[in-house]
Design a protein around this nucleic acid. Sequence first.
DNA 1: ATCATTTTGAGGTACGTCCCTCAAAAATTG
DNA 2: CAATTTTTGAGGGACGTACCTCAAAATGAT
Lengths: 353, 353
Amino acid sequence: MRPTVNDIAREAGVSLATVDRVLNGRPGVRDKTIRAVNEAIRTLGYVRNVAAANLARQRIYRFLFVLPDTQTQFVDSLKAAIAEVARGPLAESCQVMVATAPLRDPHAIGAAVQQYRTEFLDGCAIMAHETPDVRDLIIHLKSEGTAVVSLIMDQPQTPRDHFVGIDNEAAGRTAGVLLGRFVGQKPGKVAVVVSSMLARDMVERRLGFDRIMAERFAHLQVLPSVEGHDDRVLTEQITMACLASHPGVVAIYVAGAGTRGVTEAIEKVALPNRPVVVAHELTAHTRAGLVDGAIDAVIAQDVGHLARSALRVLRAKTDRLAIDAGQEQINITVLLRENLSPISARILTAAAE
Amino acid sequence: MRPTVNDIAREAGVSLATVDRVLNGRPGVRDKTIRAVNEAIRTLGYVRNVAAANLARQRIYRFLFVLPDTQTQFVDSLKAAIAEVARGPLAESCQVMVATAPLRDPHAIGAAVQQYRTEFLDGCAIMAHETPDVRDLIIHLKSEGTAVVSLIMDQPQTPRDHFVGIDNEAAGRTAGVLLGRFVGQKPGKVAVVVSSMLARDMVERRLGFDRIMAERFAHLQVLPSVEGHDDRVLTEQITMACLASHPGVVAIYVAGAGTRGVTEAIEKVALPNRPVVVAHELTAHTRAGLVDGAIDAVIAQDVGHLARSALRVLRAKTDRLAIDAGQEQINITVLLRENLSPISARILTAAAE
DNA sequence: ATCATTTTGAGGTACGTCCCTCAAAAATTG
DNA sequence: CAATTTTTGAGGGACGTACCTCAAAATGAT
């Protein structure tokens, strides 16, 4: 049987009230007594019964997700995943809110969050570019006692508690290896399409990709990035322009959103051989592309896992509990036509509504 | 605020005791009343507060994991993962036990489980070959009201509640595509090393592998499986024999345990070119192989996820709750040197103790 | 209508924690 | 040493559910 607060009281030779004061950091306890209680906690190996605690305190955690307002399939599926998790048992006694703000207007993010700060926020998960405004926002939130995690794109220069997302440099390297090995020995050019070089995830992916290409596939010439700004039409145009001005493209790495624009551009510009295409994120479109052969590999992160992990970490941080590194590690998922799960199809169509 | 049992009582116009009897399936309630209560539950959207319920009933779930007693690194890491999960918050009010039994002796499994059945088991996760004995065991457990999940290897011909593991045919196909594309255009032979063709996962992987090879890589000749029976020395011997009798092997698919035996055989039989090696499961050895280039790709399943998922599913089934398909889906993880996470190294070395 | 039986209600205690009050004890101050 | 302040103890109610008892009410059978 697990020790309870009563056991601690007995062990420490104090009353229940005192144990409670120590456990919940209430004032009016001598240092000596605090130490005695902590000692009892340690020797008995006491762990607070979180279920009972939450039951008693009727606490509602207020968590806010801040997402870009871009209408990309990936962000949509992330939103759907968050909504689903918010309905599930993980969000027990949590109020999960979602704010959206334009990625390119740094001031808008602060404004969007401001609306939710009229009441105290327990935690905040932020997916945003690494700008001074966002940095200040995170610093401010932390100073108020709000737990903060960065989502998808890290904010390493800030005091955020945790980063929920993949190692983007490793993802870029992985994409590079697959692309390079799939192309084989034949020399040629490789086009790289990103969302925006202002986005840290894009920069890191590109960095990892370039490193591996230089190191292992020197016979492939990597072209400068073209930026699609998460816009399908624009991405299609610039991809077409890129393919037109650079004959001999044998592969395309789509490091950001806009894969639809890229595949459509490929269809229109009749290349002699279909280029190898490696893209990011599992969406209805990239899934279809894998199935019909328009895309060779997709580097993905599980949005369900992202949403659950962000929630779990925010909760753990608010309660000052340890997190399970293994469980919160977001894996770089390599998807080929052959390992697409049937479930993902169901989830993606459900998210599309 | 979420509705409570009191709200249901009021809504249905009955007493708390009656609601309680309906909720917990106790006898002595008229059908008409049961329907009225259920109706109230439905209209109010009542969901039982699991935390409060477990607190009140002081219930200890008894769960048993049945694993093979083979000393492979994969099974060891799975054991470590189970032990870790058993210590974590997911195993709150759970008693998690692990029994081991020789895979090749079907009677031993029943005997191993018998020891734990002196008290009632709430749930059982079984990793075993698909034999009549195991089938009978599962049927028996289910008839007693024990929740059963199959682990790693499915038991589709039994009334198990759920399968916790990857789609092994898809895994075989994935291995095949990677191997085929990594080899490139050059023709040659492909050796396949399995644990045992009695194991369903091996058979399924081999099936998926063969399908994709026939379909997309007809220039590669796939050799018959050699069986290593999870024994490193034996695996090394038969692999060497295979390589000796079949010149022109350009790739090896290690569908089962014993990757160490295979890589050692490769080193000893000096082949003209290093063959492409695709193996299964992330272990200290396959990880090292990826890093030093002896292995090209590893198809893995996250043992932490397996352990957590099995536990969550067993709990959900005992409580007759729904499971989150997205969360319980075990992904086929493709690992290359480039997307190995630093965390996995820590975990693997920790598991090695 | 009477009896036996089934169904229902009322009430209680418990789980482990939080949070509150009030008084008693101990420590500190002048 | 007394007065003051700080620290501690004792106790209780609450959260939502489980599970128990006993009596009352409703129902069914005769």
